[in-house]
Computed example of a mutant assay.
Amino acid sequence: MDQRLEQVIAHPLHQHLGIETIESESGKARLSIVVGDNVINPAGVFHGGVLYLLCDVCAYAGLLSQLGAHTEAVTHDIHVSVMRGARAGEVVVFESNPVRVGRRIAFIDVSARVDERLIASARVTKTLLDA
């Protein structure tokens, strides 16, 4: 496993949110979390800000499997469309898929699902930098 991916998983915020593992291969990534008390909003549903953050994390994790050791990626833009909420106890699965990875910019699509129900989709744009 890429050391940078291990650092993503071990990040204290990501641990607090409930990320335990991330699969990353061929530019794609998959992660899941159980919606718990630390990620719900006052209305009792999955917090939108956490949803956005995890879409970004999933996009980055997938991209890591395609980046060279001396290339880093930072978020340039993110658009998230939320279609429905997730409730406490539900498992949300995030999957990323690279649309285009160029020399200086990458476009990644991310989906968030509960079972087979799509709850959100995102387009994440990353700027690629020399580390």
Rank of each mutant, 00 (worst) to 15 (best):
M1V: 03
D2T: 01
D2V: 04
D2L: 03
E6K: 09
V8A: 00
A10E: 11
H11C: 03
H11V: 07
L13T: 08
H14D: 05
H16Q: 04
L17S: 02
L17I: 15
I19K: 02
E20D: 04
T21E: 07
I22Q: 06
I22K: 07
I22E: 07
E23Q: 08
S24M: 04
G27W: 01
G27V: 06
G27D: 02
A29W: 08
R30C: 12
L31G: 04
I33P: 03
I33A: 04
I33K: 00
V34T: 14
G36E: 10
G36C: 01
D37N: 10
D37G: 03
D37P: 01
N38R: 00
N38P: 03
V39D: 03
V39R: 00
P42A: 10
P42F: 13
A43G: 06
G44W: 10
F46I: 14
F46V: 12
F46Q: 10
F46A: 12
H47F: 14
H47Q: 11
G48Y: 08
G48S: 15
L51M: 15
L53V: 07
L53M: 10
L54V: 12
C55W: 11
D56H: 15
C58R: 15
A59E: 14
A59D: 13
Y60P: 08
Y60I: 09
A61Y: 14
A61C: 14
G62I: 12
G62L: 11
G62K: 13
L64Q: 15
A69G: 09
T71Q: 15
E72D: 09
E72W: 02
A73Q: 10
V74D: 00
V74N: 09
H76Y: 02
H76S: 11
D77E: 14
H79E: 13
H79L: 08
V80P: 11
V80F: 12
S81K: 14
S81N: 15
V82R: 09
V82I: 15
M83L: 15
R84A: 15
A88N: 09
E90K: 11
V93N: 13
V93H: 07
F94I: 08
F94S: 04
E95V: 09
S96H: 01
S96N: 06
P98N: 14
P98C: 12
V99P: 02
R100C: 02
V101Y: 03
G102F: 07
G102M: 07
G102L: 04
G102C: 09
R103N: 14
R103W: 00
I105L: 15
I105K: 11
F107Q: 09
I108K: 02
I108F: 01
I108A: 08
I108Y: 06
D109P: 00
S111E: 10
A112W: 07
R113M: 05
L118A: 00
L118S: 01
L118P: 00
L118G: 02
L118Q: 01
A120E: 00
S121Y: 06
A122L: 00
A122M: 07
A122V: 06
R123T: 14
R123F: 00
T125D: 05
T125F: 02
T125N: 06
K126F: 08
K126D: 05
L128Q: 08
L128F: 00
L128D: 06
L128V: 02
L129R: 12
L129V: 05
D130H: 10
D130C: 02
